[in-house]
Amino acid sequence: MIPIEYWLIFSSLLFCIGAYGVLTRKNAIVVLMCIEIMLNSANINLVMFSSYHSVLHGVVDPSGQVFTLFSIAIAAAEVAVGLAILLSVYRRYQTIEVDKINILRW
């Protein structure tokens, strides 16, 4: 079995890559994709802890993995809403660069 540290390092790397993308990329679609990466790093953690829990205690408990499925479903819905918003933003401003869209300001 792969040691737990590897998983944790992997998921934190994934999270940091995602966060880096969210903070630095200008294209809103890329930002959305990066948010997906961050979300998935959390999903990896959930699945990993769920399987370790089953192995270490000798029980079959799939609830962590079920929650991950929920999370993926909700993330899909969220991306759908996000893309719809981006679409109407693009129609209004002819751009989807996040640093250009700053009308909600002082």
Partner: peptide
Amino acid sequence: LRRAQSGNVQRYAVIIV
């Protein structure tokens, strides 16, 4: 202080992080 409300979402995210 109102200049903090730049409207730039990424700057908010930086602050949160």
